[in-house]
Each structure stands twice: as C-alpha cells, then as structure tokens.
Design a protein around this nucleic acid. Sequence first.
DNA 1: ATCTGATTGCAAGTTTGTTTCATCCGGATG
DNA 2: CATCCGGATGAAACAAACTTGCAATCAGAT
Lengths: 162, 162
Amino acid sequence: MPAPPDLDPFDRAILSILQKDNTTPQRAIGERVNLSAPAVQRRIKRMQERGVIRANVALVDPARVGHPITIFVEVEVESERAELIDAAKRGFATVPEVQQCYYVTGEADFILVVTVATMADYEALTRRLFFENNNVKRFRTFVAMDRVKVGLEVPVGAPHLP
Amino acid sequence: MPAPPDLDPFDRAILSILQKDNTTPQRAIGERVNLSAPAVQRRIKRMQERGVIRANVALVDPARVGHPITIFVEVEVESERAELIDAAKRGFATVPEVQQCYYVTGEADFILVVTVATMADYEALTRRLFFENNNVKRFRTFVAMDRVKVGLEVPVGAPHLP
DNA sequence: ATCTGATTGCAAGTTTGTTTCATCCGGATG
DNA sequence: CATCCGGATGAAACAAACTTGCAATCAGAT
C-alpha cells in the first residue's frame, strides 16, 4: 500500500481554498500561501492523483432546478445479511433522487438524503424504494424546512501563514 | 423580483456536466451539447449570476485529511420559539465540523452531519453543542459505517442529445 | 564530502477562457 | 407585409490561466 501521503501546511492551505472555490487562479492561491503558481499546480495534481481531492464540481441550488424539497429518510431493514445489505446499497445508490446514502449504526440501518420536486414524487419514490422492497422493515421521513447549512467541506486544519 | 430564470435543455445539459466535473473545458462541453464555447460560457455565467450555480468547489476525501468519521445527529429541542431556533441554527452553522445542518419536521428538529477525527472529538463536540445548550432536549447519534453515496448532485432532467 | 531524490521558481509554450463583432432568428410594431 | 428590436449565436482575435522544461536548491542518507 502507498505510504501515508502526508499533507503539509501548504497542501492544507490549498485545500482550504479549493473547497470554497476551485476556480481561484493558481497564481492567486500561490500569493496567499507563498508559493509559485507551478508549485501550487503540482501539489493540486498530486492530491488529485492520491485521491485527497475526489472531484471538482459545481454546486447547484436544488430549488432552482425544480427540486425544492429535501428529505431525510431513516431506513430499517429486516435482515442484515451481507448480501441483502449490499443489494440495498446498490439499489439506493443508483437512484438519482438519492443524493446521499449512508450505512449507519444505531436505531436505523440507512440514512438517505433525497431531493424531489413534489411530495407526490416522494410518495412514488417511497413506493418504489421501500414498499416494493421486502427487506425494508420500516422507514421514517424528515422533511427539511430549512437547509441551514449544506456542503461537503471538511475542516482541514489550515494554518495561518504570516 | 427577477422573472423565473427558466432553464432550457442546453442549460440543463451543461449543469449536468458541471455537477460531475467543472474542470471540463467549455469547448468540450460545447461539443457535447452542440453549442460553441462562447455560448457555453455565457450560459454558465448567467446561471452563476442567477444563483442556479451556487459555488464551484473541490470535493475532499474526509478520511485523507484526518476526519475518517462521519456522524448523523438527530437533535430535539425543548422550545421551538423562533428566537431559540434561530440561535440554534446559527450555533450549529458556525461549527466547522458540522458540514450539514437541516431544520426538519418529524420526530426531530434538526439533523446534522458531522465529520470528526475520533470519537473522543465527537464526545467533546456533543458536550459543547448539546449538553451545554439548555434548549437541546435530546439527541440521537448514527455513526456512518459506509458512505455509500456522497454528493450534492441534483437531478436536472438532462435531455439526451444524440 | 557527496550523492540522491524531491521541491522549487522562472521562463517558454500550450491550452483555455473571454471579448468583439457581424449575423441570425422570432416576436412586436407600424 | 415590411420593419424594428432584443436576445442569442459562431468565428476570430485577444487575454488569461495552465503546463512543461530546466537549472538551482535543500535535506537526508551514504
């Protein structure tokens, strides 16, 4: 296995910037972290290759593209047989409306984050995903009234560069 | 207020691409949607101005930057007085470890997504956020064993362009 | 003391993004 | 029916950003 690809303070500072805006020119990043643009570019490239940076994406406002409703779903399954769990994972993951899916410990087995256009759509989705699935014992729905904070930013312990 | 900024099939196709990889050259996008690079560029710019595209960010693997643990928390509050709710929203939103926070209906009032380095860190966080907060009645913890699907992509009804 | 491997900055070269401008299309107007 | 007008487009010129080659630097191991 590859050695632990430690991130030095430069890398962390760069990540901290890119997680907020990855259109920031490398030259501007360089100025903020005290590095030349090529150095920044090489570090970014390396972090992509090592999987530290998994993707570069545009974040879209769901409401503006016709999906104003965000819903959390706690799903409890009948059987936790590995084969069935894997099937459930694959089943959930392939649904576009399911934007996040986690397999969790606790009083539920899965937690899903779903975006839909209407509650009728959600109702249809529950039928497809839960009622028609024999292994789903129960599910609980939480409708988001306010998306207080939404993002995938991870604290990276970016240091202060004087 | 601005008129509804309708998205035509071109816009949707562009969004669909940018949500997966916003480093795709505009010329390449143009080829895929049958538009020139400048046309693509103007549409992107317009969608940013109109708030359809909210941000352009790099997605970082939490485990690779020292936050291998993802946790869901359902929070139930004592009082739903608007003032207290707003205070709670602000309190949660400002914590870097809280990467997502939703105010929801149902058997809980808030759902948080938290990333931490260790369970000890989580324990410390719960103390700070919940035990020291008089308005938190109860909270339930779900530790993610598998991040089956993680993203903020929204289905955009992208049409097929042959 | 030297060698090796990794990293850096500069400068040149290449790709990508941006602006300009003439044209085209569709709907409203006279 | 001709005309006008706003909005969008593509080609080309232009500007900015990214990428590569190279020599210099540094730390650690030999």
